[in-house]
């Protein structure tokens, strides 16, 4: 099951309000911000993971996905910009 990160109704980023221990059923209630990485969409998360698994080689990940180097670098730049924006928003809160 995929972890939903944005609200299906208004697209706002969701937060964690309930955590539960699967062994003893202890529940923790609160208002927890999702870590920045989890605020990314599933595709973006798997892209970051793929990038990490190729030792950070844009060239290698580009050839794996059948696209050119500048296309992959552009995708990376867009993601970096989004992460910076999310970090900024998280710091404000």
């Amino acid at each position: 099951m995929k972890l939903p990160v944005s609200c299906p109704s208004c697209d706002n980023i969701l937060s964690v309000t309930l955590l539960k221990c699967n062994k003893c059923n202890t529940q923790v209630n609160g208002q927890y911000e999702l870590p920045v990485f989890l605020k990314l969409t599933n595709e973006e998360q798997s892209f970051v993971l793929d990038f990490f698994l190729t030792s950070g080689s844009i060239k290698e990940i580009a050839s794996q996905q059948g696209v050119s180097y500048p296309t992959m670098r552009n995708r990376m730049d867009d993601l970096i910009a989004k992460l910076k924006q999310l970090q900024k928003e998280a710091k404000k809160k």
Partner: peptide, 8 residues
């Protein structure tokens, strides 16, 4: 847009 798919 061959630039998006083919290597340099």
């Amino acid at each position: 847009n061959p630039f998006a798919y083919f290597s340099e």
